[in-house]
């Protein structure tokens, strides 16, 4: 296992959290009712907090590596902000699901539900990682994710069951998002050796629990998932949908326009 693979894996975990946290924060001030505006902003805050832990850890690993083999050589001492604001899309390792646009509230909560159900199982297993830092971040974050899963699952059921209109919209959201769920269980190149050595989670082991949870909630929501649909992938290896470029252009604007500043 090379240093690069563990760094890629940490970035994968961090990028997932940052990109979804950013997407959720686009709702702040525009939610369907105050109470839920606050709820989704809380989830955004939790996710951005997780991203910071991963980026801080990744930068410690990178800074400790020796000069010649170090990734991101342009920066003398990497920080969480260099990782968030100075990498381009091809260096982001998040899965495609989290970068998809918010759409309506139903699409946002469904995206959250698919992701939280995955993160819940992932963190549950990652707590036992042989990498003590990853294990600690997972243990701490699992409490938050447990709530995200409950909150988003209830919303999926609520909207699937609610009215004809909400049901139709949820079917539409399912049509938009289902094809991005397959990638959650496809290990990236950097992930495979790490899973074998007990650092990363073997995705095959958490898939049944995810399928079960998703199946239960979709059933309670009266929603049917399509079997055998083509699954998109690539994000974990840096091949993204067009959506990510726009997100980064907005997010990174100040750091790019005024390089080298303190904020």
């Amino acid at each position: 296992m090379s240093d690069q693979s563990i760094i890629d894996y940490i970035l994968h975990l961090g990028d997932n959290a940052l990109v979804l946290g950013h997407r959720n924060s686009e709702w702040t001030g525009h939610g369907p009712i105050l109470e839920q505006d606050i709820a989704l902003s809380n989830i955004a805050l939790d996710l951005i907090g997780q991203a910071r832990y991963y980026y801080q850890y990744a930068s410690r690993c990178i800074n400790a590596a020796d000069g010649a083999s170090r990734p991101f050589p342009g920066h003398e001492a990497l920080t969480e902000d260099v990782l968030a604001y100075h990498r381009d899309a091809w260096d982001f390792r998040n899965c495609l699901l989290v970068e998809q646009s918010n759409g309506h509230w139903g699409k946002t909560v469904l995206r959250q539900f698919f992701f939280s159900a995955w993160q819940f199982e992932l963190y549950g297993a990652l707590r036992h990682s042989r990498d003590s830092q990853l294990a600690a971040i997972a243990a701490k974050s699992l409490k938050e994710v447990t709530y995200h899963l409950r909150w988003s699952g209830e919303w999926v059921i609520r909207l699937g069951d609610g009215t004809e209109e909400s049901h139709t919209r949820m079917e539409e959201a399912l049509g938009d998002l289902w094809k991005y769920t397959g990638e959650l269980f496809v290990p990236a190149d950097y992930e495979k050796p790490l899973a074998l050595s007990g650092v990363a989670v073997d995705l095959a082991t958490i898939r049944p629990a995810w399928e079960l949870k998703v199946g239960e909630v979709l059933e309670a929501a009266g929603l049917e998932r399509k079997e055998g649909e083509w699954m998109q992938k690539g994000g974990k290896q840096g091949k993204h949908t067009e959506a990510l470029g726009y997100l980064l252009a907005e997010m990174q604007f100040l750091q790019r326009a005024y390089p080298g500043c303190e904020w």
Partner: peptide, 24 residues
């Protein structure tokens, strides 16, 4: 909220979300 998505550091981003959320 205009600037949440453009906040220049992760710390500033989190603080601004928390602040706007407080206003809600």
């Amino acid at each position: 909220a205009n600037w949440i998505t453009r906040a220049p550091t992760l710390k500033r981003k989190a603080t601004l979300i928390a602040k706007v959320q407080d206003e809600a």
